[in-house]
């Protein structure tokens, strides 16, 4: 039984935002709603900077599902966490609970009144009939039912972002980890963007720009 997962390789993500764009385009996600985003920590600090693309991680024990007052979440057989927009009341509880900031809300009125929640569907649509107009309007394309994987991962140029059955992803990632850094596999963040000045470790560290 498959267990759908995302994984993002911090050694490979180059913060191109291709996944974000792919997602936006694939599902016609409205302005202000971001199902996926790329976060860069330690931006500009040589050696310490890394980027990660993040969206809904389709939790096994999903906090969003646990707190939803109308119980509109459901899980597919493959562990994809989906929700029913017809039931959603836009209370925002899932957003408080989610560790990844995945649930998004189109503003539906003045004073930040929340519309129906929108989040990454793992390109699996919603409860409407697969590929129907209603499903596309509410949830976007249903690629999974067409035998395709999420657009973001398939689009990723460095294959930092992977999507699919957790077993397959583990195999891919394990192979990478075993081979990287040797022979022709000299890829990685430090190879691409440089290492801190090793001969003088102390000064390099001191030159970290301090955000105040």
């Amino acid at each position: 039984m498959a267990r759908m997962k995302f994984i993002c390789d911090a050694e490979r993500c180059i913060e191109c935002n291709g996944c974000v764009t792919a997602c936006k385009n694939e599902h016609d996600v409205p302005w202000g709603v971001n199902r996926r985003r790329v976060v860069t920590l330690n931006d500009g600090i040589v050696g310490a900077e890394r980027s990660i693309s993040v969206a809904c991680m389709h939790c096994s024990d999903a906090p969003c599902q646990a707190v939803c007052p109308v119980n509109c979440f459901y899980k597919t057989e493959d562990g994809v966490v989906l929700h029913d927009k017809d039931l959603c009341i836009g209370c925002g509880y899932c957003f408080y609970a989610c560790p990844f900031g995945a649930p998004q809300f189109p503003q539906a009125g003045a004073f930040g009144l929340r519309g129906k929640m929108d989040k990454c569907t793992f390109c699996a649509g919603g409860p409407e009939k697969d590929g129907s107009k209603a499903e596309i309007e509410k949830y976007g394309r249903n690629r999974l039912s067409e035998g395709k994987l999420p657009a973001c991962a398939e689009m990723c140029s460095t294959k930092a972002l992977l999507a699919g059955d957790g077993d397959v992803l583990s195999d891919i990632y394990r192979e990478r980890v075993m081979r990287r850094g040797r022979g022709g596999d000299l890829w990685g963040h430090a190879t691409a963007y440089g290492r801190p000045d090793t001969k003088a470790t102390a000064p390099a560290v001191q030159s970290i720009p301090q955000k105040s």
Binding site: Y74, T76, E77, L82, D86, L87, G126, P127
Partner: peptide, 8 residues
């Protein structure tokens, strides 16, 4: 694979 309100 089934929504609470309607089956997917």
């Amino acid at each position: 694979g089934t929504s609470a309100a309607k089956p997917d």
